[in-house]
């Protein structure tokens, strides 16, 4: 006789009569307010906080390292090259969007209390908001090291970041895969392009083009919102499929 058979028999001989007062006991506890059998409702703040701790520590670490690098390069006063580093910040948002499928966790998350749409929105929102806040602090700190106005430094930093985020999100939307290599390469290519820009298009950083940078910034923000909205909508389709 094998162990499984013994365990099966053990379960059989240990069968007990049904408890008679269980229902009344728990009802009594609930009436006295000692327990609640209704699902615990958590507010948006708690939900976001839980998601915050769910995001990998390496994402925050990498963001901090990148922001410090941008600050360091700005301090070194090497022209417009620091602006080319901001697209790399977008890598983290894009990598976070693929986390579920990368770790084959999507199915579990689909059945969780919150929809995958809410979970992904919360994570993108958190990573995006923290990175943008970090970038704004960096812009404020490094501004005196440039001869540009605050608004221009802001535009030169944000436009490459938003461009990489937009291209990466469009790529992720069109090509769903288990890895994020495509969008990572896009971010590095964007970074390379902006690094090459001061060489080939140095006039781009002249004051007269500020309007173009501003228009680009507004268009990118708008396109990114539209792209993310579509991505989130399609995510729901993926869930149903």
């Amino acid at each position: 006789m094998d162990n499984d058979r013994i365990i099966k028999l053990l379960k059989e001989i240990c069968s007990t009569p049904e408890p008679e007062e269980k229902k009344a006991f728990f009802q009594g506890l609930e009436d006295q307010g000692l327990i609640s059998r209704r699902p615990v409702v958590i507010n948006h703040g708690d939900f976001l906080l839980r998601q915050f701790f769910y995001i990998g520590k390496w994402i925050w670490l990498l963001s901090a390292v990148l922001l410090l690098c941008i600050m360091g390069i700005c301090y070194g006063n090497i022209g417009n090259y620091p602006f080319a580093l901001t697209p790399l910040l977008a890598v983290e948002i894009l990598v976070e969007t693929g986390r579920s499928s990368r770790w084959k966790m999507a199915e579990l998350e689909y059945t969780a209390r919150f929809s995958l749409r809410s979970v992904m929105l919360a994570r993108i929102f958190l990573v995006g908001i923290v990175e943008t806040a970090g970038l704004l602090v960096v812009i404020w700190v490094v501004r005196p090291w440039f001869s540009y106005s605050l608004i221009r430094v802001f535009l030169y930093m944000m436009v490459p970041y938003l461009a990489a985020s937009l291209l990466g999100s469009v790529y992720e939307r069109k090509n769903r895969s288990d890895n994020n290599w495509g969008s990572i390469i896009i971010c590095f290519l964007s970074s390379g392009l902006f690094a090459a820009a001061p060489y080939y298009l140095s006039s781009l950083y002249e004051e007269r083009f500020t309007v173009i940078w501003t228009v680009a910034f507004i268009l990118l923000v708008f396109s990114l919102v539209v792209s993310m909205r579509r991505w989130i909508c399609e995510l729901e389709e993926a869930v149903w499929n």
């Binding site: 240990c14 007990t16 408890p19 269980k22 006991f25 728990f26 327990i35």
Partner: peptide, 14 residues
């Protein structure tokens, strides 16, 4: 708790 009730009951009954 309700699931554990059955198990604790089984343990005590045993």
């Amino acid at each position: 708790l309700e699931e554990q009730y059955d198990r604790i009951y089984k343990y005590l009954y045993f």
